[in-house]
Design a protein around this nucleic acid. Sequence first.
DNA 1: CGACTGATTGATGTGACTCAAACCTTGTGG
DNA 2: CCACAAGGTTTGAGTCACATCAATCAGTCG
Lengths: 218, 218
Amino acid sequence: MEQYKSGDRLVEAGTEFLSQDRQADSIYTVLSGWAIRYQWLSDGSRQILDFALPGSILGFEPEAMDLNRHSAEALTKLRLCILPRSKLIQLLAEFPEMGIKLASIGRSEQITLAQHLSNVGRRRARARITNLMMELLVRTRATSSNVIGDTIPFPLSQEVIGDALGLTSVHVNRMMRELREDGIAVVRSGKLTILDEERLMEEAELDHRHLAAPMEVN
Amino acid sequence: MEQYKSGDRLVEAGTEFLSQDRQADSIYTVLSGWAIRYQWLSDGSRQILDFALPGSILGFEPEAMDLNRHSAEALTKLRLCILPRSKLIQLLAEFPEMGIKLASIGRSEQITLAQHLSNVGRRRARARITNLMMELLVRTRATSSNVIGDTIPFPLSQEVIGDALGLTSVHVNRMMRELREDGIAVVRSGKLTILDEERLMEEAELDHRHLAAPMEVN
DNA sequence: CGACTGATTGATGTGACTCAAACCTTGTGG
DNA sequence: CCACAAGGTTTGAGTCACATCAATCAGTCG
């Protein structure tokens, strides 16, 4: 497999390394760091679709379409594995079982997206935020084994949280103050500390089955 | 390919033919009719994830997971093509190019879902509704060639529309009254009539690029 | 003809938005 | 090493879109 990749790529935090409507030439796998996948709407607002953590795949587009449908931006320093689009065909020809693997990963991402849609469509602000915190807590624990205790990296500005959850950053701020005052969770200088995981899970109304199927590859 | 399918299945409107948390034994392709894919939340509310029209695939789950993640219900009389899960492996072994095809379809569904998420997360009620109308108008035109003029089948109750868009059916009703009074669109006995497509598209703030890539198979 | 499901409408409440200002952090250049 | 810039955070006051609650009405079916 190693022979197919065209190399790694290092990206600084804040860089948009994938742009919607631009030529989709490569498929990226996140090796380390965090990123967001998002799209712009015609009114200038931004919807963040999901968060890419190590193992996530970005930039894979349907056969017929050769433009990226979504953009992606690094939230932290990011290390990516690059697989040129043309090589994918070869790879799949040689290892057919990778086809179903790729489809499975795609379906897992779909499930995450559906979870996200339910969150935005049916829950109120506070539950959306706690739900997002729980999702990222679980995914972080699953991917990086060196997480200690109840503090995880959390490189999301309130603006980013708002754009992911369909809220204004102002309202995100108010809700996070409540969570802080209620002794549930605190975000401080890029780190999230869970003060009361019991209560956090309750408020998040988390779909537990979701935790069972991490979407990681490699 | 024909040899792999285990047969067709006819389903009446209103039947839940796929249930979340039940054994995922088959993959369904919609041959004719409309269906919804949805999930229940812990508070008893329902989020409709997307609409399945002819060509859509339902019930495909990641390798590791053998339970359905979502439910599906027929909105109209439905004809389905059934492919047993076990046969899928064989099929892909014999036709490796189907792997990338399956992955591509999955990614297309993901794009639809992302579109839906943006709609719910960032737009107000009226735009959400017009956007949904436009999506279904375009998809209907793409799949069934026998659509005449500006009227399409529209078997969605206001309850269903609300559950798809994160609104109450009461509010959906008010918005649809406005659309009717403004001479933009009317829904009447299971049919949607577009009165002013120009204005409908404007209000829908539709992402036009989306139209280019139908997610059909076969 | 009830019974039921979906559509319609009104009155009232509230969660989240908007606008606006101040504050804090972090990085930068003189 | 301080001044300043720039982004992000915090807080308040006022408003509005949508929810909730509660009826009534229309269409359909056994």
